[in-house]
Design a protein around this nucleic acid. Structure first.
Lengths: 232, 232
DNA sequence: GGCGGAACTTGTTTTAGCGCAAGCTCCCAG
DNA sequence: CTGGGAGCTTGCGCTAAAACAAGTTCCGCC
Protein backbone atom coordinates (compact mmCIF):
# COMPACT_ATOMS: atom_id res chain seq x y z
CA UNK A 1 0.00 0.00 0.00
CA UNK A 2 1.24 3.47 -0.80
CA UNK A 3 2.41 5.17 2.37
CA UNK A 4 0.18 8.06 3.42
CA UNK A 5 1.84 11.28 4.33
CA UNK A 6 0.60 12.90 7.48
CA UNK A 7 0.25 16.22 5.73
CA UNK A 8 -2.96 14.98 4.13
CA UNK A 9 -4.72 15.05 7.48
CA UNK A 10 -3.42 18.44 8.51
CA UNK A 11 -6.96 19.79 8.48
CA UNK A 12 -8.68 17.00 10.32
CA UNK A 13 -9.72 18.36 13.73
CA UNK A 14 -9.99 15.00 15.40
CA UNK A 15 -6.30 14.35 14.76
CA UNK A 16 -5.18 17.85 15.66
CA UNK A 17 -3.93 17.02 19.12
CA UNK A 18 -1.83 14.03 18.08
CA UNK A 19 1.94 14.05 17.67
CA UNK A 20 3.58 13.40 14.32
CA UNK A 21 4.65 9.92 15.41
CA UNK A 22 1.19 9.01 16.63
CA UNK A 23 -0.29 10.24 13.39
CA UNK A 24 2.06 8.08 11.38
CA UNK A 25 1.09 5.10 13.49
CA UNK A 26 -2.57 5.72 12.88
CA UNK A 27 -2.16 6.41 9.20
CA UNK A 28 -0.25 3.24 8.54
CA UNK A 29 -3.46 1.29 9.11
CA UNK A 30 -5.50 3.56 6.86
CA UNK A 31 -6.47 3.13 3.26
CA UNK A 32 -7.24 6.03 1.01
CA UNK A 33 -10.16 5.42 -1.33
CA UNK A 34 -11.69 7.50 -4.09
CA UNK A 35 -15.48 7.60 -4.39
CA UNK A 36 -16.78 8.89 -7.70
CA UNK A 37 -19.82 11.12 -7.74
CA UNK A 38 -23.07 9.25 -6.94
CA UNK A 39 -21.30 6.18 -5.62
CA UNK A 40 -22.00 4.98 -2.10
CA UNK A 41 -19.40 4.80 0.66
CA UNK A 42 -21.55 2.51 2.76
CA UNK A 43 -25.15 1.39 2.73
CA UNK A 44 -27.88 1.39 5.34
CA UNK A 45 -28.08 -2.02 6.93
CA UNK A 46 -24.73 -3.09 5.56
CA UNK A 47 -22.11 -4.57 7.86
CA UNK A 48 -20.13 -1.82 9.58
CA UNK A 49 -16.72 -2.95 8.39
CA UNK A 50 -14.97 0.42 8.42
CA UNK A 51 -14.91 3.91 9.81
CA UNK A 52 -13.81 6.92 7.82
CA UNK A 53 -12.44 10.42 7.64
CA UNK A 54 -13.42 12.47 4.62
CA UNK A 55 -10.39 14.09 3.00
CA UNK A 56 -11.99 15.73 0.04
CA UNK A 57 -15.47 16.20 -1.37
CA UNK A 58 -18.97 16.04 0.10
CA UNK A 59 -21.24 13.19 1.12
CA UNK A 60 -24.95 13.04 1.64
CA UNK A 61 -26.04 10.73 4.46
CA UNK A 62 -29.56 9.45 4.03
CA UNK A 63 -31.89 7.15 5.84
CA UNK A 64 -34.84 5.26 4.39
CA UNK A 65 -37.90 3.82 6.12
CA UNK A 66 -39.06 0.30 5.37
CA UNK A 67 -41.87 2.02 3.44
CA UNK A 68 -39.41 3.79 1.21
CA UNK A 69 -39.69 7.29 2.67
CA UNK A 70 -36.29 8.91 2.73
CA UNK A 71 -34.63 11.73 4.65
CA UNK A 72 -31.28 13.43 4.40
CA UNK A 73 -29.65 12.98 7.78
CA UNK A 74 -26.80 15.39 7.08
CA UNK A 75 -24.03 16.33 4.71
CA UNK A 76 -20.44 15.44 5.48
CA UNK A 77 -17.66 17.85 4.55
CA UNK A 78 -13.90 17.36 4.31
CA UNK A 79 -12.16 16.81 7.63
CA UNK A 80 -15.08 15.07 9.30
CA UNK A 81 -15.12 11.68 10.95
CA UNK A 82 -18.03 9.49 9.83
CA UNK A 83 -19.28 5.93 9.72
CA UNK A 84 -18.31 5.24 13.34
CA UNK A 85 -21.17 2.76 13.74
CA UNK A 86 -18.88 0.30 15.44
CA UNK A 87 -18.01 2.78 18.19
CA UNK A 88 -21.69 3.15 18.92
CA UNK A 89 -21.99 -0.62 19.30
CA UNK A 90 -23.84 -1.03 16.01
CA UNK A 91 -23.05 -3.97 13.78
CA UNK A 92 -24.59 -2.35 10.74
CA UNK A 93 -24.58 1.15 9.31
CA UNK A 94 -27.79 2.96 10.22
CA UNK A 95 -27.77 5.06 7.07
CA UNK A 96 -26.37 5.30 3.56
CA UNK A 97 -23.55 7.68 2.59
CA UNK A 98 -23.36 8.85 -1.01
CA UNK A 99 -20.70 11.01 -2.63
CA UNK A 100 -22.40 14.07 -4.10
CA UNK A 101 -19.16 15.05 -5.83
CA UNK A 102 -16.04 13.02 -6.50
CA UNK A 103 -14.63 12.44 -3.03
CA UNK A 104 -11.72 10.87 -1.19
CA UNK A 105 -11.84 9.28 2.23
CA UNK A 106 -9.47 7.47 4.54
CA UNK A 107 -10.84 4.27 5.93
CA UNK A 108 -9.87 1.99 8.79
CA UNK A 109 -11.23 -1.45 9.61
CA UNK A 110 -13.82 -1.11 12.39
CA UNK A 111 -12.00 -3.81 14.29
CA UNK A 112 -9.15 -1.39 14.91
CA UNK A 113 -11.33 1.13 16.74
CA UNK A 114 -10.93 -0.43 20.21
CA UNK A 115 -7.16 -0.65 19.89
CA UNK A 116 -6.78 2.82 18.44
CA UNK A 117 -8.89 4.46 21.12
CA UNK A 118 -7.08 2.51 23.81
CA UNK A 119 -3.76 3.78 22.51
CA UNK A 120 -4.92 7.30 21.70
CA UNK A 121 -7.57 8.43 24.20
CA UNK A 122 -7.84 11.72 22.35
CA UNK A 123 -9.53 9.77 19.57
CA UNK A 124 -12.27 8.54 21.88
CA UNK A 125 -12.75 12.01 23.29
CA UNK A 126 -12.89 13.45 19.80
CA UNK A 127 -15.42 10.90 18.65
CA UNK A 128 -17.55 11.62 21.68
CA UNK A 129 -17.55 15.30 20.82
CA UNK A 130 -18.33 14.61 17.19
CA UNK A 131 -21.24 12.38 18.06
CA UNK A 132 -22.34 14.81 20.74
CA UNK A 133 -22.50 17.73 18.39
CA UNK A 134 -24.43 15.63 15.91
CA UNK A 135 -26.87 14.81 18.65
CA UNK A 136 -27.25 18.51 19.34
CA UNK A 137 -27.87 19.24 15.69
CA UNK A 138 -30.43 16.47 15.40
CA UNK A 139 -32.27 17.61 18.51
CA UNK A 140 -32.34 21.13 17.16
CA UNK A 141 -33.85 19.74 14.02
CA UNK A 142 -36.61 18.06 16.00
CA UNK A 143 -37.26 21.34 17.76
CA UNK A 144 -37.41 23.12 14.41
CA UNK A 145 -39.77 20.59 12.94
CA UNK A 146 -42.05 20.92 15.94
CA UNK A 147 -42.14 24.65 16.16
CA UNK A 148 -41.46 26.20 12.79
CA UNK A 149 -43.29 26.67 9.52
CA UNK A 150 -41.93 25.03 6.41
CA UNK A 151 -40.62 28.32 5.06
CA UNK A 152 -38.56 28.92 8.18
CA UNK A 153 -37.20 25.42 8.10
CA UNK A 154 -36.09 25.76 4.51
CA UNK A 155 -34.38 29.05 5.33
CA UNK A 156 -32.59 27.41 8.25
CA UNK A 157 -31.52 24.50 6.10
CA UNK A 158 -30.07 26.75 3.41
CA UNK A 159 -28.21 28.86 5.92
CA UNK A 160 -26.74 25.77 7.53
CA UNK A 161 -25.68 24.40 4.16
CA UNK A 162 -24.10 27.73 3.26
CA UNK A 163 -22.21 27.79 6.53
CA UNK A 164 -20.97 24.26 6.11
CA UNK A 165 -20.28 24.25 2.41
CA UNK A 166 -20.71 27.78 1.11
CA UNK A 167 -18.47 29.26 -1.54
CA UNK A 168 -18.37 33.00 -2.05
CA UNK A 169 -19.41 33.94 -5.55
CA UNK A 170 -19.98 37.21 -7.32
CA UNK A 171 -23.28 38.17 -5.72
CA UNK A 172 -23.77 35.82 -2.82
CA UNK A 173 -22.85 32.45 -1.40
CA UNK A 174 -23.25 29.30 -3.43
CA UNK A 175 -23.78 25.84 -1.99
CA UNK A 176 -20.65 24.09 -3.12
CA UNK A 177 -22.16 20.86 -4.42
CA UNK A 178 -25.11 19.75 -6.52
CA UNK A 179 -28.27 19.78 -4.44
CA UNK A 180 -31.78 19.24 -5.74
CA UNK A 181 -35.10 20.61 -4.45
CA UNK A 182 -35.86 17.04 -3.51
CA UNK A 183 -32.78 16.97 -1.28
CA UNK A 184 -33.81 20.17 0.46
CA UNK A 185 -37.29 18.71 0.92
CA UNK A 186 -35.80 15.63 2.57
CA UNK A 187 -33.74 17.82 4.89
CA UNK A 188 -36.71 19.84 6.04
CA UNK A 189 -39.44 17.24 6.16
CA UNK A 190 -41.52 18.61 3.34
CA UNK A 191 -42.13 17.93 -0.34
CA UNK A 192 -40.27 18.75 -3.53
CA UNK A 193 -43.26 20.85 -4.63
CA UNK A 194 -43.35 23.04 -1.58
CA UNK A 195 -39.60 23.67 -1.71
CA UNK A 196 -39.86 24.58 -5.38
CA UNK A 197 -42.63 27.07 -4.67
CA UNK A 198 -40.72 28.66 -1.81
CA UNK A 199 -37.50 28.99 -3.80
CA UNK A 200 -39.40 30.42 -6.76
CA UNK A 201 -40.96 33.04 -4.52
CA UNK A 202 -37.58 33.88 -3.01
CA UNK A 203 -36.01 34.12 -6.43
CA UNK A 204 -38.69 36.70 -7.38
CA UNK A 205 -37.68 38.75 -4.36
CA UNK A 206 -33.99 38.39 -5.19
CA UNK A 207 -33.18 36.41 -2.06
CA UNK A 208 -31.80 33.39 -3.84
CA UNK A 209 -30.79 32.37 -7.30
CA UNK A 210 -31.58 28.94 -8.54
CA UNK A 211 -30.83 26.50 -11.25
CA UNK A 212 -30.69 22.80 -11.77
CA UNK A 213 -29.17 21.37 -8.58
CA UNK A 214 -27.74 24.77 -7.79
CA UNK A 215 -28.61 27.27 -5.09
CA UNK A 216 -27.01 30.66 -4.49
CA UNK A 217 -27.96 32.73 -1.47
CA UNK A 218 -28.00 36.37 -2.51
CA UNK A 219 -29.32 37.83 0.70
CA UNK A 220 -28.36 35.62 3.64
CA UNK A 221 -29.30 38.29 6.15
CA UNK A 222 -32.86 38.48 4.92
CA UNK A 223 -33.01 34.69 4.89
CA UNK A 224 -31.89 34.71 8.48
CA UNK A 225 -34.77 36.98 9.36
CA UNK A 226 -37.18 34.60 7.67
CA UNK A 227 -35.60 31.68 9.51
CA UNK A 228 -36.10 33.45 12.83
CA UNK A 229 -39.70 34.22 12.04
CA UNK A 230 -39.20 37.95 11.72
CA UNK A 231 -39.88 37.65 8.05
CA UNK A 232 -43.37 38.60 6.95
CA UNK B 1 -19.83 12.46 53.17
CA UNK B 2 -21.56 9.13 53.68
CA UNK B 3 -19.70 6.38 51.87
CA UNK B 4 -21.62 4.92 48.97
CA UNK B 5 -21.83 1.21 48.68
CA UNK B 6 -21.14 -0.22 45.27
CA UNK B 7 -24.28 -2.34 45.44
CA UNK B 8 -26.35 0.74 44.66
CA UNK B 9 -24.98 0.82 41.13
CA UNK B 10 -25.37 -2.88 40.49
CA UNK B 11 -27.90 -2.14 37.77
CA UNK B 12 -26.04 0.63 35.99
CA UNK B 13 -24.93 -0.74 32.62
CA UNK B 14 -22.18 1.76 32.10
CA UNK B 15 -20.41 0.51 35.22
CA UNK B 16 -21.06 -3.14 34.51
CA UNK B 17 -17.59 -3.94 33.19
CA UNK B 18 -15.70 -2.34 36.08
CA UNK B 19 -14.08 -4.24 38.92
CA UNK B 20 -15.21 -3.78 42.50
CA UNK B 21 -12.13 -1.73 43.33
CA UNK B 22 -12.56 0.52 40.33
CA UNK B 23 -16.17 1.06 41.27
CA UNK B 24 -15.23 2.07 44.78
CA UNK B 25 -12.72 4.52 43.37
CA UNK B 26 -15.32 6.08 41.14
CA UNK B 27 -18.01 6.15 43.79
CA UNK B 28 -15.85 7.90 46.33
CA UNK B 29 -16.07 11.05 44.19
CA UNK B 30 -19.82 10.78 43.79
CA UNK B 31 -22.56 12.50 45.71
CA UNK B 32 -26.02 11.05 46.03
CA UNK B 33 -28.79 13.62 45.78
CA UNK B 34 -32.52 13.38 46.14
CA UNK B 35 -34.69 15.35 43.74
CA UNK B 36 -38.32 15.76 44.79
CA UNK B 37 -41.06 15.53 42.19
CA UNK B 38 -41.16 18.57 39.88
CA UNK B 39 -37.75 19.85 40.92
CA UNK B 40 -35.07 20.38 38.31
CA UNK B 41 -31.77 18.50 38.24
CA UNK B 42 -30.22 21.02 35.87
CA UNK B 43 -31.48 23.83 33.68
CA UNK B 44 -31.07 24.63 30.02
CA UNK B 45 -28.30 27.16 29.61
CA UNK B 46 -26.97 26.61 33.12
CA UNK B 47 -23.31 25.91 33.69
CA UNK B 48 -22.57 22.21 33.21
CA UNK B 49 -21.07 21.64 36.63
CA UNK B 50 -21.90 17.95 36.99
CA UNK B 51 -22.76 14.75 35.23
CA UNK B 52 -25.13 12.17 36.64
CA UNK B 53 -26.37 8.62 36.86
CA UNK B 54 -30.02 8.16 37.78
CA UNK B 55 -30.44 5.64 40.57
CA UNK B 56 -34.14 5.82 41.10
CA UNK B 57 -37.11 7.60 39.57
CA UNK B 58 -37.79 9.20 36.22
CA UNK B 59 -36.75 12.49 34.65
CA UNK B 60 -38.19 14.44 31.77
CA UNK B 61 -35.60 16.23 29.64
CA UNK B 62 -37.00 19.22 27.82
CA UNK B 63 -35.73 21.90 25.53
CA UNK B 64 -37.22 25.32 24.95
CA UNK B 65 -36.84 27.69 22.01
CA UNK B 66 -36.12 31.38 22.56
CA UNK B 67 -39.76 31.88 21.54
CA UNK B 68 -40.97 29.67 24.36
CA UNK B 69 -41.93 26.61 22.32
CA UNK B 70 -41.01 23.48 24.21
CA UNK B 71 -40.33 19.86 23.37
CA UNK B 72 -39.68 16.78 25.44
CA UNK B 73 -36.30 15.49 24.35
CA UNK B 74 -36.62 12.21 26.21
CA UNK B 75 -37.32 10.54 29.50
CA UNK B 76 -34.51 9.21 31.67
CA UNK B 77 -35.00 5.99 33.62
CA UNK B 78 -33.02 4.49 36.47
CA UNK B 79 -29.56 3.25 35.52
CA UNK B 80 -28.97 5.81 32.78
CA UNK B 81 -26.10 8.22 32.44
CA UNK B 82 -27.21 11.79 31.75
CA UNK B 83 -26.06 15.37 31.82
CA UNK B 84 -22.73 14.60 30.18
CA UNK B 85 -22.61 18.01 28.53
CA UNK B 86 -18.99 18.43 29.52
CA UNK B 87 -17.95 15.31 27.63
CA UNK B 88 -19.53 16.75 24.51
CA UNK B 89 -17.44 19.89 24.96
CA UNK B 90 -20.41 21.98 26.05
CA UNK B 91 -20.01 24.50 28.82
CA UNK B 92 -23.74 24.69 29.46
CA UNK B 93 -26.53 22.18 29.63
CA UNK B 94 -28.46 22.15 26.36
CA UNK B 95 -31.73 21.16 28.03
CA UNK B 96 -33.55 21.06 31.34
CA UNK B 97 -34.02 17.87 33.38
CA UNK B 98 -37.01 17.66 35.69
CA UNK B 99 -37.92 14.88 38.12
CA UNK B 100 -41.39 13.61 37.23
CA UNK B 101 -41.46 11.53 40.39
CA UNK B 102 -39.26 11.70 43.49
CA UNK B 103 -35.86 10.62 42.20
CA UNK B 104 -32.32 9.95 43.32
CA UNK B 105 -29.20 10.51 41.26
CA UNK B 106 -25.47 10.20 41.73
CA UNK B 107 -23.53 13.23 40.60
CA UNK B 108 -19.89 13.90 39.87
CA UNK B 109 -18.24 17.24 39.18
CA UNK B 110 -17.80 17.66 35.44
CA UNK B 111 -14.17 18.48 36.02
CA UNK B 112 -13.54 14.86 36.98
CA UNK B 113 -14.70 13.52 33.62
CA UNK B 114 -11.32 13.77 31.89
CA UNK B 115 -9.52 12.05 34.75
CA UNK B 116 -12.11 9.34 35.17
CA UNK B 117 -12.19 8.47 31.49
CA UNK B 118 -8.41 8.49 31.34
CA UNK B 119 -8.29 6.02 34.21
CA UNK B 120 -11.27 3.94 33.10
CA UNK B 121 -11.49 3.80 29.30
CA UNK B 122 -14.63 1.69 29.59
CA UNK B 123 -16.36 4.82 30.82
CA UNK B 124 -15.52 6.72 27.66
CA UNK B 125 -16.61 3.79 25.52
CA UNK B 126 -19.83 3.51 27.48
CA UNK B 127 -20.56 7.20 27.16
CA UNK B 128 -19.94 7.01 23.43
CA UNK B 129 -22.45 4.20 23.14
CA UNK B 130 -24.98 6.02 25.26
CA UNK B 131 -24.70 9.18 23.21
CA UNK B 132 -24.69 7.12 20.02
CA UNK B 133 -27.92 5.36 20.83
CA UNK B 134 -29.49 8.68 21.72
CA UNK B 135 -28.40 9.98 18.35
CA UNK B 136 -30.06 6.98 16.74
CA UNK B 137 -33.26 7.58 18.63
CA UNK B 138 -33.30 11.25 17.74
CA UNK B 139 -32.69 10.54 14.06
CA UNK B 140 -35.49 8.01 14.10
CA UNK B 141 -37.68 10.68 15.56
CA UNK B 142 -36.85 13.03 12.69
CA UNK B 143 -37.67 10.26 10.26
CA UNK B 144 -40.98 9.68 12.02
CA UNK B 145 -41.85 13.34 12.01
CA UNK B 146 -41.12 13.53 8.31
CA UNK B 147 -42.95 10.48 7.20
CA UNK B 148 -45.72 9.64 9.62
CA UNK B 149 -49.12 10.98 10.50
CA UNK B 150 -49.72 12.37 13.96
CA UNK B 151 -51.71 9.31 15.00
CA UNK B 152 -48.84 6.99 14.12
CA UNK B 153 -46.36 9.17 15.95
CA UNK B 154 -48.46 9.16 19.10
CA UNK B 155 -48.76 5.38 18.92
CA UNK B 156 -44.99 5.09 18.53
CA UNK B 157 -44.40 7.43 21.44
CA UNK B 158 -46.71 5.47 23.75
CA UNK B 159 -45.14 2.17 22.79
CA UNK B 160 -41.69 3.56 23.44
CA UNK B 161 -42.76 4.90 26.82
CA UNK B 162 -44.31 1.57 27.71
CA UNK B 163 -41.15 -0.24 26.76
CA UNK B 164 -38.96 2.10 28.73
CA UNK B 165 -41.15 2.62 31.76
CA UNK B 166 -44.09 0.27 31.49
CA UNK B 167 -45.58 -1.48 34.49
CA UNK B 168 -47.85 -4.48 34.02
CA UNK B 169 -51.27 -3.86 35.47
CA UNK B 170 -54.49 -5.81 35.50
CA UNK B 171 -55.52 -5.26 31.89
CA UNK B 172 -52.54 -3.78 30.14
CA UNK B 173 -49.35 -1.83 30.62
CA UNK B 174 -49.31 1.43 32.50
CA UNK B 175 -46.78 4.20 31.98
CA UNK B 176 -45.07 4.27 35.33
CA UNK B 177 -45.05 8.01 35.98
CA UNK B 178 -47.41 10.96 35.65
CA UNK B 179 -47.57 12.11 32.05
CA UNK B 180 -49.95 14.70 30.67
CA UNK B 181 -51.46 14.99 27.17
CA UNK B 182 -49.33 18.09 26.85
CA UNK B 183 -46.20 16.01 27.46
CA UNK B 184 -47.19 13.51 24.78
CA UNK B 185 -47.87 16.42 22.44
CA UNK B 186 -44.38 17.77 23.09
CA UNK B 187 -42.89 14.36 22.38
CA UNK B 188 -44.63 13.99 19.06
CA UNK B 189 -44.58 17.51 17.71
CA UNK B 190 -48.29 18.14 17.89
CA UNK B 191 -50.76 19.88 20.18
CA UNK B 192 -52.45 18.99 23.41
CA UNK B 193 -55.78 19.11 21.60
CA UNK B 194 -54.88 16.62 18.93
CA UNK B 195 -53.41 14.18 21.46
CA UNK B 196 -56.55 14.46 23.55
CA UNK B 197 -58.73 13.71 20.55
CA UNK B 198 -56.63 10.72 19.53
CA UNK B 199 -56.57 9.25 23.03
CA UNK B 200 -60.30 9.78 23.39
CA UNK B 201 -60.91 7.92 20.15
CA UNK B 202 -58.63 5.11 21.24
CA UNK B 203 -60.31 4.91 24.60
CA UNK B 204 -63.64 4.43 22.79
CA UNK B 205 -62.13 1.51 20.92
CA UNK B 206 -60.68 0.05 24.12
CA UNK B 207 -57.07 0.49 23.01
CA UNK B 208 -56.03 2.66 25.91
CA UNK B 209 -57.37 3.79 29.22
CA UNK B 210 -56.85 7.32 30.35
CA UNK B 211 -57.07 9.55 33.32
CA UNK B 212 -55.42 12.60 34.68
CA UNK B 213 -51.71 12.25 33.89
CA UNK B 214 -52.22 8.53 33.49
CA UNK B 215 -52.09 6.30 30.43
CA UNK B 216 -52.63 2.55 30.31
CA UNK B 217 -52.12 0.63 27.07
CA UNK B 218 -54.74 -2.08 26.91
CA UNK B 219 -53.96 -3.37 23.44
CA UNK B 220 -50.30 -2.75 22.60
CA UNK B 221 -50.45 -5.03 19.60
CA UNK B 222 -53.19 -3.04 17.95
CA UNK B 223 -51.31 0.15 18.78
CA UNK B 224 -48.27 -1.30 17.09
CA UNK B 225 -50.30 -1.85 13.96
CA UNK B 226 -51.44 1.74 14.04
CA UNK B 227 -47.87 2.88 14.57
CA UNK B 228 -46.77 0.92 11.53
CA UNK B 229 -49.53 2.36 9.42
CA UNK B 230 -51.46 -0.88 9.08
CA UNK B 231 -54.16 0.58 11.25
CA UNK B 232 -57.31 1.83 9.54
C1' DG C 1 -28.26 17.05 -33.26
C1' DG C 2 -32.16 15.20 -31.65
C1' DC C 3 -34.09 12.00 -28.15
C1' DG C 4 -35.25 10.82 -23.45
C1' DG C 5 -35.52 11.53 -18.97
C1' DA C 6 -34.37 13.92 -14.70
C1' DA C 7 -35.10 18.20 -12.51
C1' DC C 8 -38.02 21.69 -11.93
C1' DT C 9 -42.32 24.82 -12.16
C1' DT C 10 -46.88 25.88 -11.52
C1' DG C 11 -52.00 25.40 -11.11
C1' DT C 12 -55.87 23.15 -8.67
C1' DT C 13 -57.94 20.31 -5.16
C1' DT C 14 -58.09 18.29 -0.77
C1' DT C 15 -57.31 17.48 3.99
C1' DA C 16 -54.93 16.84 8.45
C1' DG C 17 -54.59 18.90 12.23
C1' DC C 18 -53.96 23.60 14.34
C1' DG C 19 -56.03 27.65 16.57
C1' DC C 20 -59.69 29.31 19.04
C1' DA C 21 -63.32 28.85 22.23
C1' DA C 22 -66.14 26.95 25.61
C1' DG C 23 -67.09 23.89 29.10
C1' DC C 24 -66.17 19.87 32.04
C1' DT C 25 -63.96 17.10 36.02
C1' DC C 26 -61.28 16.02 39.48
C1' DC C 27 -57.85 17.15 42.85
C1' DC C 28 -56.17 19.82 46.50
C1' DA C 29 -55.99 23.70 49.68
C1' DG C 30 -57.97 26.34 52.82
C1' DC D 1 -66.81 20.67 52.21
C1' DT D 2 -66.29 24.16 49.11
C1' DG D 3 -63.84 27.03 45.82
C1' DG D 4 -60.34 27.42 42.41
C1' DG D 5 -57.47 25.89 39.09
C1' DA D 6 -54.87 22.42 36.44
C1' DG D 7 -55.71 19.01 33.31
C1' DC D 8 -58.67 17.42 29.98
C1' DT D 9 -62.49 17.15 26.36
C1' DT D 10 -64.94 18.63 22.38
C1' DG D 11 -66.90 21.46 18.65
C1' DC D 12 -65.95 24.44 14.67
C1' DG D 13 -63.70 26.97 11.16
C1' DC D 14 -59.51 27.79 8.80
C1' DT D 15 -55.24 27.36 6.62
C1' DA D 16 -50.68 25.54 5.46
C1' DA D 17 -49.07 22.36 2.92
C1' DA D 18 -49.71 17.76 0.88
C1' DA D 19 -51.65 15.36 -3.11
C1' DC D 20 -52.79 15.35 -7.61
C1' DA D 21 -51.84 16.87 -12.20
C1' DA D 22 -49.83 19.01 -16.21
C1' DG D 23 -46.57 21.09 -18.22
C1' DT D 24 -41.55 23.10 -19.28
C1' DT D 25 -36.51 23.14 -19.40
C1' DC D 26 -32.24 21.52 -19.52
C1' DC D 27 -28.67 18.03 -19.75
C1' DG D 28 -26.30 14.07 -21.25
C1' DC D 29 -26.17 10.37 -24.47
C1' DC D 30 -26.60 7.76 -28.54
Amino acid sequence: MAPLDRSIVANVPIFASLSADDLDAILCDARSVRYPKDSSVFDQGGEAHSFFVLLHGHLRVEKTTPQGQQIVVRYVSAGELFGVAQALALKNYPATAIAVVDSVALSWPSALWPQLTAKFPALAAGALQTVGSRLQDTQDRVLEMSSEQVEQRVAHALLRLAKQAGRKVEHGVEIDFPISRQDVAEMTGTTLHTVSRILSAWEQQGLVEGGRQRIVLRDPHRLFEIAEGQGK
